[in-house]
Write a protein that binds this DNA or RNA. Structure first.
Lengths: 145, 145
DNA sequence: GTCAATTATCTCGCTGAGCGAGATATTATC
DNA sequence: GATAATATCTCGCTCAGCGAGATAATTGAC
């Protein structure tokens, strides 16, 4: 019967570890931690079918517009991403991820994701549902909206 | 019945949101994201009764020794932390957190932690246990040791 | 006991990530 | 059609964090 606080600290530990794994992967590929986080955000947006503009990316990374331009420049230079003007609102720049970026993401985080999926499968459906609801609630608690 | 993958993505989302909140708090207090992460690590170590040396801090933050010296210098300058030579192994520098740092941490993350604790209390003991075990397993899956 | 090897931290010099301020281009408002 | 609001980019600058190497303390081998 673990205390509520120990569970909260575990949650933080997960965040710390995810950050460390991203940073290690970044260093191993000549990228910066922010670049990896950006790529993850862009892949997430792509999967969710969301726009993926420069502005949204910056907000999600906590960067201002200048910093955002810098990240996108680096990803473009590495060939993981390209810029496309949004035809409907030509102020916007849509950021399109290349297949190479998808492959990179899988190579980097596939094994970790696989281990977590395996872990989830050791729980009953009811338990999995509770875990999912808890994480949903945590995101809501952390996201001011 | 959410898919395993959607739960994994939620977990990543939690990590992203925690990072954002830390970065916002850092900016609001004239600190850098790394400084806040360092403070959290030091407070965690203190609570767990672990040593909290410069080297361990650097490893946990993914910094090399030069960068670690820099973080500690900044925290010392801000008065949140002080250096103390370990009497048993005088190569080591123990990093002692000030009460001000504890108060700062509570002010910054207390409300969020409170919301998550409240959230946990909406689950049955069995569900809470499953959540805790899942997070334990996730840390193990992410931490190469 | 002493000399080398190892460990923990720090210093120095440098690169570049990300900030603030402001420019530019596009769209919405009146 | 002028004005305001929005989205992104450019420029110049600061400082976080890296690599290389110095310093100091400890451990191990002989």
């Amino acid at each position: 019967m673990p205390s509520e606080m120990s569970t909260v600290h575990l949650l933080r530990e997960v965040a710390v570890q995810f950050g460390l794994r991203s940073a290690e992967f970044a260093a191993a590929n000549g990228m910066h931690p922010t670049d990896v986080r950006a790529l993850i955000c862009l892949l997430d947006a792509e999967r969710a079918g969301e726009p993926a503009t420069a502005g949204r990316l910056g907000a999600r990374l906590g960067l201002n517009s200048a910093g955002t331009t810098g990240v996108v420049d680096r990803l473009v230079r590495l060939g993981y991403v390209r810029r496309e003007r949004d035809p409907h609102d030509r102020r916007r720049v849509r950021i399109v991820v290349d297949e190479r970026a998808v492959a990179l993401g899988e190579a980097a985080f596939g094994p970790l994701i696989g281990r977590i999926v395996d872990l989830l499968r050791t729980f009953t459906p009811a338990e999995r549902d509770a875990i999912h609801r808890f994480l949903l609630g945590t995101v809501a608690a952390a996201d001011p909206d």
